[in-house]
Design a protein around this nucleic acid. Sequence first.
DNA 1: CATGGGATTGACT
DNA 2: GTCAATCCCATGC
Length: 202
Amino acid sequence: MSSARTDTERHLRALELPVVAAAEALVGCTMTHGATSGVIVEAEAYHEHEPACHAFAGLTDRTWPLFAAPGIAYVYRSYGIHALLNVVVEPEDVGAAVLIRALEPLTGEDLMRARRGRDRATELCSGPGKLTQALGIELDLNATSLLDGPIRLGPPPPERPLPRVVAGGRIGITRAVELPWRFCAAGSRHVSRPWPAGLLAS
DNA sequence: CATGGGATTGACT
DNA sequence: GTCAATCCCATGC
């Protein structure tokens, strides 16, 4: 695929892929809620067969959206404080999702600044808890469709080259840390953390 | 039913 | 670098 051409179906194709490929393919796509939107610059894959995934515990009151059809949001409370946004993928009855970890702000930056109480563009959406705050996403949007809204997953912005993607270990987990299931837009200043030296080119 | 910990962030030393 | 905030859920007694 040419990196100089965007693709209006990329987000839809990503929803049909296995979760690791989906996480990589979603980098460069857009996420929109109301007037705010951004380009995904960091995402991580989670799958029920590995212990860092909530779905590892099986089907529960908390995890059921992970086992639902691809294209819905899994939004959960982290550390009692933050709402974290995932894109559910893989067929129904398979628990898998892509955690959206960082966005490059595209529209509604001033509203993001007001919600976040921060000015610099790189402080608005550079973390999974930050971007939900910037976009106004809370737990009431759990299990809603990412194709019909209110939150919308969309294709990469037209006329923008797709980013090169680098892979590395996932952040903030204690189990299955060896899996290189974190994907970042190479060179982006909007990621949650700079990638370590060991990151592999994709 | 009590408890421990977490896919985080921001403030502070 | 350290640490508290804060709450839902899974686990174990």
